[in-house]
Amino acid sequence: MTSTEKVDLRGAAATLLMTLYMRRQDARSRRPILGDPWAEPVWEHIEHDVHGLWQLTGDVSAIVCRAATLDGWTREFLADEPTGQVLHLGCGLDSRPLRVGVPSTCRWVDVDQPEVMAVRRRLYDLPGNSEQISGAVTDDDGWSAVDPTLPTLLVAEGLFMYVPAEAVHATVDRVVSGTPAATLAFDAVAPWTVRA
């Protein structure tokens, strides 16, 4: 990472700055929960408008606990299925493939919107077995990279609440019916949370 990136993301894509900010706040704390070592250097390479982000500091524990839980489930899958694949939907600027220690025998597929993936590719030095796919998580682009013969973990953190219910069901159905063994790791929230 040698330059500063100007990030101008709208709508749901903009939430990646909030979660990155909170992972950074956690990493800076005296007793971090997640302790993401990539949050600070990535944050420092982004030109961003921090107006209002300070208001989110009360959510830091919830967000990093969520990430730590999903990391734990991902590590369990990788231990059980080291030659499987992980489909990381709506990956944003998350450093999960670096944090969990993806074995070289595993296929890792990150999927997010093109403008997000363009920034991600420039800011992270990801493992060679990590494929970066640009496209909406409900499009065929991400699914074309999935090997239908491998056990698959689908990770969707902070994503499904922004996707229409029918698209969530279609995504789950696709991974369950399209792979020999599917494990799902995601979070869910009450409808009022999205509005808030």
Results as ranks from 00 to 15, higher is better:
V172E: 04
C65Q: 13
L17M: 14
P32Q: 04
D110G: 08
D139P: 01
T74P: 00
F186R: 05
R96C: 00
L16F: 03
P151H: 03
Y21Q: 07
L159E: 08
P148M: 02
S29H: 09
T69P: 03
L154Y: 01
D125S: 12
D26I: 09
G158D: 07
S29I: 11
K6C: 07
P127M: 07
M117L: 11
R195S: 14
E115R: 12
P148R: 05
V109K: 06
P37E: 12
P82H: 01
V189A: 14
D173Y: 00
L56Q: 13
T15Q: 04
L34S: 01
V50P: 15
G52K: 13
A167E: 15
F77L: 03
T138C: 02
R24S: 09
R28W: 12
T149S: 12
T149G: 08
S130L: 10
L34M: 04
L16W: 11
R174W: 09
Q85K: 03
F160W: 11
G90E: 05
R24C: 10
L53K: 08
V7R: 04
E166Q: 10
V175C: 10
H48A: 15
D26N: 10
G178V: 10
V111S: 06
L154Q: 02
V60W: 10
R28T: 11
A27R: 09
R99Y: 03
D80H: 07
T2V: 12
W54H: 13
V50F: 01
Y21R: 05
E166C: 00
D173C: 06
V100C: 06
A14N: 13
E131N: 03
D147K: 06
V146W: 02
T83D: 13
A12E: 12
D112P: 07
D94N: 05
T57K: 15
G84E: 05
E131F: 09
A190S: 14
R174Y: 03
E44P: 08
D71P: 09
L78T: 05
S29Q: 09
L153S: 04
T171F: 00
A181K: 13
E166S: 11
W54V: 12
M18H: 10
Q113H: 15
G90N: 08
Y162H: 12
V42F: 12
A165T: 10
A145M: 07
E76D: 14
V50A: 15
L159M: 04
A79H: 10
T74C: 02
A181I: 00
L17F: 09
G178S: 09
L159T: 04
R96G: 03
T152Y: 01
S29A: 14
A182C: 13
V137R: 01
T69M: 10
A190H: 15
D36Y: 02
V109W: 05
R31P: 10
S144V: 04
K6Q: 14
W73F: 11
V102G: 01
G101D: 05
T149Y: 01
C65E: 14
R75E: 01
P180E: 04
A136C: 03
P191L: 13
K6L: 13
S134V: 05
L78H: 04
C91S: 14
G35E: 02
P41F: 02
D139H: 06
W38I: 00
L150A: 08
V100S: 03
T138R: 07
E5G: 04
A145H: 13
V100F: 02
A68H: 09
A27M: 09
A167T: 00
R75I: 01
